[in-house]
Design a protein around this nucleic acid. Structure first.
Lengths: 203, 203
DNA sequence: CAGTTAACCGAACGGTGTTCGGAATACACA
DNA sequence: TGTGTATTCCGAACACCGTTCGGTTAACTG
């Protein structure tokens, strides 16, 4: 993937960066992003607080790196859905992958989709997010093409509603209903199927 | 509403508490909850940092109080929907009230529904939230009774899906699509109508 | 081997939330 | 009205935080 002709020094630096990043990632999935302390990261990875600044410009850049990792992980969930499924099934499974990611990585889901500072992640994350977003757009477009979704609705509105539904389900499950031990994946699937059927025909 | 036979001292204390709370509320709606500084609140309300501890046990209690205010405001939006509307119209307008609150009070919406610490707001907020939640449950139950929603679906799942849809729309609009200047209220209404129609008949 | 660069740290600065002892103030009661 | 008590409020301090800077190793380069 990447160029492997790195000097030992560069390879060492990359490894150190990765170590620090892993520590931060683990601390975030343990206690959430709001409780991340740079000094604690330094402590756990055997650096002095100042030492970290060799690898990350500041705290925001560190959590931005974790967010980027999270986006890649999220992207993997989404891309794992076979594209050769029937259009409506594909759409359904895409939504389920979204929700599965949230349930299996609650802290990272919160981190990458719920951070109040949208200024931090702009370049690379947006790029990856756009990539997965495109999967949704294409998926819906295919359903429109095959007539499995009524062309009475605009593509933009359909994308918005589909995204909102799975995002809302994910958010509710991980942040408000986590203690309730219902089978949320089953409920989500049932109601997503209903949603797909609902928009399959004109009013 | 409340008992007015308070001593002047109690009245003064209540007023001071309210002043501090207002300052905090304004600071939150200006720059978000994550940027709230207790010392800055003290500065703006002419107290010393230590002085605030006479009225709030700690910072978390202060933002908990702001959250409670936010819940009450949110509850007012929801209760403003006339209950004598036709069942399906009522349900639709309930959802629109939810989204309107989010759009018109983005920081407070984020604050009360997106705080990573679910341990803080348990007692009063849950109570009010349950109150508005009950509006949704009753609204859907009425639709089931009149047959405007297919009884093929379970009440719990319907409530979950309805809540998730409006919550997702709200969250996306205020935190990811705020710069996009589409008419999100219109899009939301269109797709909520589609959702209502979608579950009106069995598969 | 000498010079340069990278890697790292100790110490400090200004900020934060919070605690504590005490001072000022307002109150209740004699 | 005076006195004792409870409320208000604050200054100072503590521990922690993110960040910067100068300097000291350590590693690479020629």
């Amino acid at each position: 993937m990447t160029e492997d002709d790195l000097t030992p020094r560069e390879r060492r630096a990359a490894r150190a960066r990765e170590t620090i990043l892993d520590t931060a990632r683990q601390m975030i999935s343990e206690r959430g992003a709001h409780a991340l302390s740079l000094r604690e990261v330094a402590r756990r990875s055997d650096y002095s607080p100042a030492g970290l600044y060799e690898y990350f410009g500041n705290k925001d850049e560190l959590v931005a790196a974790v967010i980027e990792q999270g986006f890649e992980r999220f992207s993997r969930y989404m891309r794992s859905v076979p594209i050769d499924l029937p259009p409506r099934t594909y759409l359904l499974e895409l939504g389920m992958a979204y929700i599965r990611f949230a349930i299996e990585n609650p802290q990272h889901f919160m981190l990458i989709f719920n951070t109040p500072d949208m200024h931090a992640h702009k370049s690379e994350d947006e790029f990856i997010a756009e990539g997965t977003h495109h999967l949704l757009v294409k998926g819906i477009q295919r359903c429109l093409d095959t007539g499995e979704i009524s062309n009475h609705y605009q593509l933009d509105d359909l994308v918005f509603a589909a995204w909102a539904t799975v995002h809302g389900m994910s958010t509710l499950i991980v942040s408000h209903l986590s203690q309730d031990d219902r089978d949320w994946l089953a409920s989500s699937r049932t109601m997503l199927e209903a949603w797909c059927r609902g928009i399959s025909s004109a009013p």
